[in-house]
Design a protein around this nucleic acid. Sequence first.
RNA 1: GCCGAAGUGGCGGAAUUGGUAGACGCGCACGACUCAAAAUCGUGUGGAGGCAACUCCAUGAGGGUUCGAUUCCCUCCUUCGGCACCA
Length: 826
Amino acid sequence: MSYDHQQIEKKWQNFWYTSNIFKANDDPNDKKEKMYILDMFPYPSGAGLHVGHPEGYTATDIISRYKRMNGYNVLHPMGWDAFGLPAENYAIKTKIHPDKSTHDNIKTFTKQIKSLGFSYDWDREIATCDADYYKWTQWWFLFLYKNGLAYKKQAPVNYCESCKTVLANEQVVDGKCERCKNDVLPKNLNQWFFKITDFIDDNDKTSGLLNGLEKIDWPESTKISQKNWIGRSEGINFKHKVKDLNIEFEVYDSVPQTFLAQTFVIIAPEHPMVKELVKGTEYEKKVMGFVDKVKHKKAIGRFNIENDMEGIFTGRYSENYMGTGRDLPIWVASFALMDYGTGIVGCSAHDERDFAFAKKYNIDLKPVMFPKDQLEAEKIKNLEYCYCKDPEGVMELPEKFKGRKWGEVRNDIINYIVEKDFGRKNINYKMRDWLVSRQRYWGAPIPIIYCESCGEVPVPEKDLPVLLPTDVDFMPTGESPLLKSKTFHDVKCPKCGSEKAKRESDTMDTFVCSSWYFWRFIDPRNLKEFAGKDLMKTWGNVDLYVGGAEHTVLHLLYARFFCKVLHKYGYIDYDEPFQKLRHQGMILGEDNEKMSKSRGNVINPDQIVEKFGADSLRLYEMFMGPFKDVKPWSSKSLEGIYRFLNRVWKLSENIPLDKGGLGDSLEQLRHFTIKKVTQDIENFDFNTAISQMMIYSNAMQDALNAPLIKGVGGIYLEDIETLTLLLSPFAPHITEEIWHEFLGNKETIQNTPWPKFDENKSQKKEIELVIQINGKLRGKLICSPDISKDDALKQAKELDEIKKYLDGHELKKEIFVHGKLVSLVI
RNA sequence: GCCGAAGUGGCGGAAUUGGUAGACGCGCACGACUCAAAAUCGUGUGGAGGCAACUCCAUGAGGGUUCGAUUCCCUCCUUCGGCACCA
């Protein structure tokens, strides 16, 4: 009987999916320890499943099956991140309604994913575009709204003319739309925001988005990215007063050590104060003209600090700077940012940009920190280059800190500034509040009603969901398609009953839908709550979350924010949603390039499954290399894996009736293999786990061949059983078949306990002790791993190949590493 | 520019509390089986030299620490990913 993967895989998938063996047990009295293992749910694109999807899904499936075999109650669900632009763009092109194309795509994805034999609890399947899901997305909006965490404000937003939509900052790349690559223009619109910035730092109950990172098992690089994205900085807001005008303002500086070096002030062109400064003066016309010019440049996304560092003097001064008697000229500068700090900056010789700006416009500079080296210090005095942020730099001013190092005075100077009342401590973040409004159709409607007399009114919870209307035209016009619906827009005010009320016509960013889906999996059919409190308690947070590194900041930050909100309001007792996170590396085409239709290097998983089977695909993707690394596809290596499975099949088919001739010849290797595979699964080292199973099966083949050659040997049934069990999470179909057909078991292998190893038996009885002379390998000694130093040295020196090196040389040093080597220095 | 990840045979990759570099797989070569091929099985396979035993070289480059470095330290180069004026 040969290995017929098509028949075997169909057979066992049928069995698994009809017998419900992957169902997670919700019973709180279940004795088994719970384990929530989650994949980042996919966007069901029209292109179908990509070979990148099964990489992560196989890893979580291996862990899920492995954990079940170790007695855990595993929750391993799958669903669809189904709202989003592509379906809508597809509708614009083909006139096919997004609801239809999305559900068609979901069908395809489901079929493809099921063909890979993943052990999902399919009863919990969800799709974010279904009304019984987005009803709760809307609930979330109201929940945030009621707690003051959702608010509306006029804001300049990124607007893409071509996509006719507002984009989040994150969707703008190099001033261009991430999707269509066209220029992004700013436009003022009334938009909804979520107050994510309220959760950056800890509050009295909940750890913040920064400190929360300390207690979770995530890749360090991902944590660093999130920290950089948040961009927290502590500094000082300095007090300034405009000379001859009754205007006071503040200037933020996160590096306040060199504050006395400041010789001029710059203000962002968009700042409302600019107008006041120049009003009625001879400067007014020129300055306002400059402001318009810069605004335009920024609007078309052509601003570049290298080429566009420009400024203009306002004719005004900041009076008597920090009591020094100096008045600092105030300039409008193209590179001053309106939305960071106060929009006004104090400038000095100790900042690269300020320095360049001052040089360009001949503004006075006054360094207050110098290098130790006298010659270099002289250069700084002569302003030959910009000297900044050198921890070894020696302070000159303020007088009180003269001679101290820049790197050591920060806190003292901050205290000094506060004491002298020059300014106050302040914190700034690069991250802004989360803009969630989208002028799009294929998303969850924002549940707000605008009444002529009551104003902004939240939709009462009992009226949820606010259904997406079907009578719309998707063609983009710059306004939300929902405005085109006759049935949707007009509504009675829930508060006063007035007929003169209209619905909010924007939908929510799809990241809102994906910020809470992992709770819905816990209780997916609940009609009263987004998830029941008891069940949320039973399952706790996600134990293991696996997905691509492209979600390092956005999705993972937003989901953490939602979790912190739930924690703050007492819904859950944890404040981090994903305890352990791992990213899979991208799979490249055989040509080492990113897979794309245009390059023609796309591998279709369906074809692989048909020709080599799901088990081969799964095993191959895990064997390619380290899980987190980027790695190219290789059809030949895939065939190698297929051959391996065929060898395992034949090996199992030929189980000897007799238990073998030479005793338990593979005992040590068996125990070592169990140990290695177990540890490697825990560590996500799937590639080396598979190598070890190959070594084990090769050794079994050798043992089987042995009697033919020498008349001795043979393998134990236990070896076949062990290999089958170890391989089962990786290649579940073939192992299930072997388990039943060749090994005669009646129960599914999925419920069989994971093999145990004996540490002592996993150790080699005999080792090769390496003998080095002057660090070079010169000989080997076969001995027990427990050999003593004295014995090892004595025996090593007696070896012929060692003797010849030692003769006539003085022995200077002898090194012995237990169980490893002897090193002799002559 | 800043941050992050990584550079090992013909290829994917193993090996790090510093201890035999190249496990495992692919590819390739030779052999067995076959009329032949495919499949399968077996043997070999980093480079240079030598009949051989063996010797030398080799983990992006150059230094350093060490009896010993792919692993630790310094300088530099390259590739990939992310962020871009955050004062």
